[in-house]
Amino acid sequence: MAKVPVQFTLNGSEKAEFVESGTTLLNTLRDKIGDTSPKGGCQQGTCGACSVIVDGELRLSCLTLAETCNGVAITTTSGLAEGGVLHPLQRAFLDTFATQCGFCTPGMIMAAKVLLDHTPNPSREDVVEALSGNICRCTGYEPIIQAVLTAARANSQNAA
């Protein structure tokens, strides 16, 4: 099958790959580029484990074709820590025990980051709404909601 070129930045680095037409962004990131932080939980856009940020917006990488991603900027959870310093969301997920098996965590952090980028001081309802596309089977969600609210407070204190 004919392969198509695709070029984008991933966490600030230039990437270029040839992919089979129809290949998902999820498989391209995981199998071609080797960034396994987005997870394949359902491959049908219902669990949110594959969530990544494309040009500032939350996207389900299992439903996004790689060939539609030319020229975009992609952020994944593996690229959030800078110089070994955890992002406030990563710190908050650690501190509030918001991870158990960890499989949903990268997707949760992506969804939370897009929320905080747009809404720095979210209400609890904002957080619940922002995470509503991400399934967690371990925690019962409450520690995750607390983690996002904790990170938002940490951000606003740093900004003040």
């Binding site: 960034d35 932080s37 987005p38 959870t77 990563q90 997920f93 650690l94 965590t105 990268p106």
Partner: peptide, 15 residues
């Protein structure tokens, strides 16, 4: 195991 979970570094079998 949490530091691996929040940084996406935890290696699951499919990784």
């Amino acid at each position: 195991d949490s530091p691996g979970h929040v940084t996406g570094k935890t290696a699951y079998f499919a990784d």
